[in-house]
Computed example of a mutant assay.
Amino acid sequence: METQDDSRATSYTTLPAGSDFRHELEIRRSRFITVLRRSPDEDTARSLVADLRREFHDARHHCSAFVIGPDRMIQRSSDDGEPSGTAGIPMLEALIKRETADGVTDLSDVSAVVVRYFGGILLGAGGLVRAYSESVSKALDLAPLVERKRLRLCDIGVPHADAGRLENELRSGGFVMAETLYEARQAVLRVALPDEPAVLEEAQDRVAALTAGASVLNPQGTEWVDVPR
């Protein structure tokens, strides 16, 4: 199974972690309550459906869709009793076709559930498709989004006396600095960089220039980090 570290993607757009986002539409007397949740795995996505079945236990339908992973390899949907293809698939398409920054379609790690209370007026197949698609799209219009980037953590070993100066120069140059480690024989500065070969090469040249070739950038592991848009 692919993991986030195996991904070809180095960034994608998602919801902030920690809280659900809700939005409600009324269409021809039917209530469509959309709930969005950050879902890094299928268990989290399916737990949203279970939670809403308990909360809205008297609703007729709890339709769902989710897309998971930096490369968006996991995509699932459910009509939950609505006519086949009129709810889950339109919801999923609203997620995967969502344009985020610069017209990119990279929304992921998001699950959507639309709870429907039937209002007594039949919408027909076309009406249902539009209603479920619009419900998710309108919720996404209003929901906060964050960019999730894969950063490469890199170590730079320097003498203790040079650590403060080099850290300040790297910060001034726009580098994202993690916690500095002070060991017995040296200080280890830690830098977080976009996990892209060109960026790493440029950073290596910068460190060499700032230390007159005395220190090098040592790439370590990667970490996914949320960056507000």
Score class of each variant (00 low, 15 high):
residue 220 Q to L: 12
residue 4 Q to E: 14
residue 9 A to N: 03
residue 127 G to I: 00
residue 136 V to Q: 14
residue 183 E to G: 11
residue 90 P to Q: 00
residue 128 L to T: 07
residue 217 L to M: 04
residue 88 G to F: 03
residue 19 S to D: 11
residue 38 R to Y: 15
residue 205 D to C: 08
residue 45 A to H: 04
residue 220 Q to I: 07
residue 9 A to V: 10
residue 160 H to T: 02
residue 171 R to P: 01
residue 42 E to I: 08
residue 13 T to R: 02
residue 162 D to R: 13
residue 8 R to F: 06
residue 215 S to R: 09
residue 183 E to T: 10
residue 174 G to H: 12
residue 128 L to E: 04
residue 152 R to E: 06
residue 157 G to D: 11
residue 209 A to T: 02
residue 123 L to A: 04
residue 227 V to M: 12
residue 222 T to W: 01
residue 152 R to K: 15
residue 158 V to Y: 03
residue 142 L to M: 09
residue 128 L to I: 07
residue 172 S to C: 08
residue 155 D to I: 05
residue 129 V to F: 01
residue 81 G to E: 04
residue 174 G to F: 08
residue 211 T to W: 15
residue 130 R to W: 00
residue 193 L to K: 12
residue 19 S to T: 13
residue 78 S to Y: 09
residue 133 S to Q: 13
residue 22 R to S: 12
residue 20 D to F: 04
residue 183 E to D: 09
residue 58 D to K: 01
residue 56 F to Y: 14
residue 205 D to N: 13
residue 158 V to Q: 09
residue 103 G to E: 06
residue 195 D to H: 11
residue 137 S to K: 09
residue 43 D to P: 05
residue 70 P to D: 05
residue 159 P to L: 02
residue 37 R to Q: 14
residue 202 E to R: 15
residue 171 R to Y: 08
residue 14 T to M: 06
residue 134 E to L: 08
residue 102 D to L: 09
residue 93 E to A: 09
residue 153 L to V: 13
residue 4 Q to M: 12
residue 198 A to T: 06
